[in-house]
Computed example of a mutant assay.
Amino acid sequence: MTNIHVLPTFDLATQAEKNRQRQEIADDVAQFLRSGGKVQKLGNSPIDRSTITRREVVEGGHGRRTANKGARA
């Protein structure tokens, strides 16, 4: 998709503004790391679909629905 296919809206950030924000975030992270901070990079944890239903995934995890049901009763 090119820019000619996108309708401009007035409340969206310009490309220059996005680039400025990216640089600002990169500078903040670099300063955080220099001061001894550590960033935990989270990975992709696949779900074992043989032990959990789609509904349980949507509702937040295996066993959540049964735990809440028991707590309400």
Rank of each mutant, 00 (worst) to 15 (best):
L33Q: 03
G70Q: 12
R49D: 05
G61A: 08
D27F: 03
K18M: 13
N19K: 13
E59H: 13
R65V: 14
G70V: 06
V39Q: 02
V29K: 03
Q21S: 05
T53V: 05
T14K: 12
V57W: 05
T14F: 03
N19L: 12
L12Y: 04
Q15R: 12
T53G: 06
H5R: 10
E17H: 04
D28Q: 13
T9F: 10
H62N: 09
R65F: 10
K41F: 13
K69D: 09
R55I: 03
T9H: 12
N68M: 15
G63R: 06
N68D: 04
V58N: 03
A67K: 14
P46S: 11
I52V: 15
S45I: 14
G60N: 03
V58G: 00
A67E: 10
H62D: 03
I47P: 01
E59I: 02
R55S: 08
R20P: 00
A67R: 15
T14L: 09
K18Q: 10
S50G: 12
A26W: 01
R64M: 06
Q21Y: 07
T53L: 08
K18V: 14
R55V: 07
M1G: 12
E56K: 01
G70D: 05
K41S: 08
V6G: 01
A16K: 15
I52N: 06
P46N: 04
G36L: 02
G61Q: 04
Q31H: 09
H62E: 11
R34H: 02
Q23C: 01
D11Q: 07
D48R: 08
R34N: 04
R64D: 00
L42A: 07
D48G: 03
G36N: 04
A13N: 08
L33S: 01
I4N: 12
R65N: 08
Q31A: 15
K18E: 10
R54S: 11
R22A: 09
S35E: 15
L33D: 01
A13M: 07
V39P: 00
T51S: 14
N3H: 06
G63A: 02
E59N: 13
M1D: 08
Q21E: 11
G36E: 02
D28C: 05
S45N: 09
F32K: 02
L42N: 03
F32G: 05
L42G: 00
N68G: 12
D28K: 14
Q21N: 10
K38N: 06
V6N: 03
F10E: 13
D48M: 02
R55A: 08
S50C: 02
T2G: 14
E17W: 01
S50D: 15
Q23R: 11
N68Q: 13
E17V: 01
A30Y: 02
G36F: 02
G36V: 04
S35K: 12
V39S: 00
K69W: 08
R55F: 10
P46W: 09
A13E: 08
R64G: 01
A71P: 01
